[in-house]
Design a protein around this nucleic acid. Sequence first.
DNA 1: CTGTTAGCGCCTTCAG
DNA 2: CTGAAGGCGCTAACAG
Lengths: 369, 369
Amino acid sequence: MTSRRRVRPGGGFTVDTMGAERGDEPRSRPTLRDVGRLAGVTGATASYVLNGRADGQVSAETSARVLRAAAELGYRPNSAARALRTRRHRIVGLVLGEVHHNPPPIWAMAGAHDEARARGHSLLVTNAIGTRAGLRRAFDELLDRQVDSIVVAVSGTRAVPVPTPIDGTPVVLVNCFPTPDGVPCVLPEEEAGGRAAADFVLAQGHRRVALLAGVASLWATQARVRGYRSALACAGLPDDDGLVRYGTYRMASGYHLAREVLGGSPPPTALLCGNDRMALGAYVAVAEAGLRIPDDVSVMGYDDEPELASEAVPALSTVRLPYEAMGQWAVRQLLSGAYDTLPPRTLIPCEVVPRDSVAPPTRVQTATR
Amino acid sequence: MTSRRRVRPGGGFTVDTMGAERGDEPRSRPTLRDVGRLAGVTGATASYVLNGRADGQVSAETSARVLRAAAELGYRPNSAARALRTRRHRIVGLVLGEVHHNPPPIWAMAGAHDEARARGHSLLVTNAIGTRAGLRRAFDELLDRQVDSIVVAVSGTRAVPVPTPIDGTPVVLVNCFPTPDGVPCVLPEEEAGGRAAADFVLAQGHRRVALLAGVASLWATQARVRGYRSALACAGLPDDDGLVRYGTYRMASGYHLAREVLGGSPPPTALLCGNDRMALGAYVAVAEAGLRIPDDVSVMGYDDEPELASEAVPALSTVRLPYEAMGQWAVRQLLSGAYDTLPPRTLIPCEVVPRDSVAPPTRVQTATR
DNA sequence: CTGTTAGCGCCTTCAG
DNA sequence: CTGAAGGCGCTAACAG
């Protein structure tokens, strides 16, 4: 076996068949070489054809033969070999915040998935517990797999400590921003969203509208509250602090806050909730108070959770958080080569989704407890 | 080395450039050879050490040097090269039912992810629209990537047409069963679950318990109803058809069914709902009827949706569907080598999660509408 | 227009 | 105990 001195100068031509022939393995997948053999050409030629790089290189009938052979054999390119050779794995890595509890990142995943697939990439998903170490682990897993790019999606808009180093792998953050700065992110235009919610209700004629906000310390919460206040101000309404309450973004919180606020006098005629779940809590409180939605009180949600807002009774008017769009956007930037020119922050608008829970105030409404 | 055309004969070391360089490649990753070089050994030796196969093969200090070198360089094995060589990609593919609308598969994903990671595998996720062609596409994507195994998770327990061929890749179905038979699946023990829910309420002393079931045609629905009926029968209660209603598994359905049933006379003292969302709908109907939970009516959910059941007001007693456990189980079977001996169907129990929405009936309850 | 060849980075006998 | 060598399946440069 001395032959394998690569090429002996002077050229002996010892095809070193061995490898391929001694096969007898159960039945390994057909390789490019197998396709070529069946079509009477080399593996290389088969590669050209199968990769569409055959224009004017390979004759039409040869191409056809190759294609037929590939189909017959059920040929599937070996992704590892291809990745090894091209240095592109065609995989985008997705880091999710705690999956079990938070639906939002899932919608971002849906968007990211569709965009990735459309561009011939696959999605490698990993779950990260909210700690810095958890994130590091998630990134390491992805980096070990040599994903070409990384998307991070969490639910509550917040600062995320992006691990370094990341081996030059491009990263985009969805619904969160990096600390320290350095990687681009997409965020919902929360302030405009809060403002849109308030405007929507104001436009129906409401004048006493309460804001049952979420967790006070969060960036998103504050932005929405700013939007709300600016809408009130523009409408020439007083800034009544009694009408703004902070909660936890959970159903129970919506329930309790709604009770409180409905007990005031005069009670508000519209409730703007921090998210859809709080709105659902408010639904129960309103019903318990003997009031009807939207006849006696209008209720507005936030998020537009699929299968939740649209199916409440009455269907919940809300503001759609563009998670899916953000996920899609992130992957598109990553794969389109636009990455290097991305601004530090990109804002995506939130649209009001009008449904049945908001209507004009009918008369002077009184809370009959 | 005279061969390589691009290498100038006699020449020193003109790295081949083109392919690699044109990528402007700033700094390619360190390879096993680099690690070896830095440690003063060959790549092969470094491989031994780094893969723990160095026992008695490589001296302790050599090992230490290698380890140090690897750390210093931030060495990460190239997964493609490894996969190519070992023919194991260490990836499990996950096919999800429509992600946007259905939370359940997500919990299965969480379980699958954790188990996979614990075994050094990664999760490649793909979304499949519910059609046969959609499934085929999803499988093809996974097969193209040469995942080592596949898990399919959908939300409504139903028959799934598993695409063939699958190149010998092992497949496990979560929360659904295959048509035609042939691949193993895991299902929740729905009948026992339905029975447990009824028993739980019966044990509190309820005698008129209504079942607000989901979609009548579904396997899971029917199994749960069977469980319910058997519980009633065992308790010596009549099988009153007026107390079983079918709906859609949506909130609105729970709301309307609850209204109907609450208007009957005498009204039931307990409501068993097809899922948590229907229970939430029932919450509103109950409140509107001027009744309180659990004082006047007990309500029981099904699923134990994270962040939903536990946060309702009052917290919803329910039956936990073991999605996460099923996802985990599936991956474990796939990766533990037990696959070949799996029975066609495996059932995982559903546990009652007692919370605050169920209590003993207090007195003769009257529905005051 | 088609075939040959040399690796991508890794693992694994096989020699020394 | 260590090093050399070959090849996994594919692509890209080149030769005929």
